[in-house]
Nucleic acid binder design. Sequence first.
DNA 1: CAGGTGACTCTTT
DNA 2: GAAAGAGCCACCT
Length: 111
Amino acid sequence: MYRHIYRVVKQIPAGSVATYGQVAELAGMPGGARVVGTALRALKETGSAGQVPWQRVVGKKSPGRGKISILDPVGGAMQKKLLESEGVELEASGAISLDRFGWLPPDAGRR
DNA sequence: CAGGTGACTCTTT
DNA sequence: GAAAGAGCCACCT
């Protein structure tokens, strides 16, 4: 079960987004960004999609810029729609400015 | 146990 | 700036 990953994703506040690598690191799996993606994909199977704001997790393309890396085109469209609904402004191509909407972890690198 | 795959990320050409 | 290669961890066959 990816409960660790889900826990981190649930901590992401509305109107903010986090990258897979960031979630993986906070979940205790540095470098396990791929696993986070697998976990989110499994969300649909487990039916936990309604409990975990997976739409707030995006892929980190260029530094300071997030992007929807989801494979499923349907889920991607839904994610973009949900993010806009939360107040996150998406640039052209669905890119997100992490400088403005990037989630700052409560205990990043401390402790 | 071994091989292949993937909602990732970084470095190099 | 875009494309390709390598590294990474977990899951499935």
